[in-house]
Design a protein around this nucleic acid. Sequence first.
DNA 1: AATTATTGTATCGTTCCGCTATACATAGGT
DNA 2: ACCTATGTATAGCGGAACGATACAATAATT
Lengths: 114, 114
Amino acid sequence: MTEKFESDLLRGSLDLMVLSVLASDPQYGYSIQKRLQEASREKVRLPAGTLYPLLHRLEADLLIRSWLDSSTGRQRKWYALTAKGKKRLAAQAAQWQQYADCMKSLIGNYLPAS
Amino acid sequence: MTEKFESDLLRGSLDLMVLSVLASDPQYGYSIQKRLQEASREKVRLPAGTLYPLLHRLEADLLIRSWLDSSTGRQRKWYALTAKGKKRLAAQAAQWQQYADCMKSLIGNYLPAS
DNA sequence: AATTATTGTATCGTTCCGCTATACATAGGT
DNA sequence: ACCTATGTATAGCGGAACGATACAATAATT
């Protein structure tokens, strides 16, 4: 069983992860947390102290917007991508792939035989 | 022409990059800088203020070892991987690939058509 | 010959992000 | 009644990448 990724590995790509989770449909904080956890097979488990400040940052940058909804019984803060957020997602995703290609060419020889 | 990668993207993989550059043969700081620059097609340009503290950290962790050599005319500080460093390189590379797979499954739909 | 750019290593202080710890509140299960 | 899961939030810490700065030897340019 593999452990969590090192914190520093996530740094700089957590924004991108969260944006990508929000791309399909609106989510609230806790559901983002669970989705990422599931999608990464437990290798990404964002602590609340990481997630919420991150969401506040993204909102301050107008990449996502939020609204409260208590109609489902429970008070939840929903988030959705803005138009700016969608552009940022595409741009960040493209840059990430370039970075990944670059890394692969560097460390390709030291990777375990797949 | 693409620009440099964002600093935070590199964070957590710079160690791995440097270790991989040192894997083939010993290098000194400046040559590591140039190699990474070249291998990344100018998208990774480590400032001295990043590179040298990083090398000192790796050495303190016994992942690399160093010696001075002035025989080639110029005083240079050479670095080579230790046995521990080689193991770390393999481990970090493996972990990075898992991380990359995870990212790809997350952002795959938002990647530009290649 | 003098000046500039490149090579080469190093440190200080700032900035910023992920984390731990802590806090508070509602809902559901035993 | 108690415990767990759900749900959001902030304060403070630690650490890495960076810009600025410093110093010095060598190569290139004028």
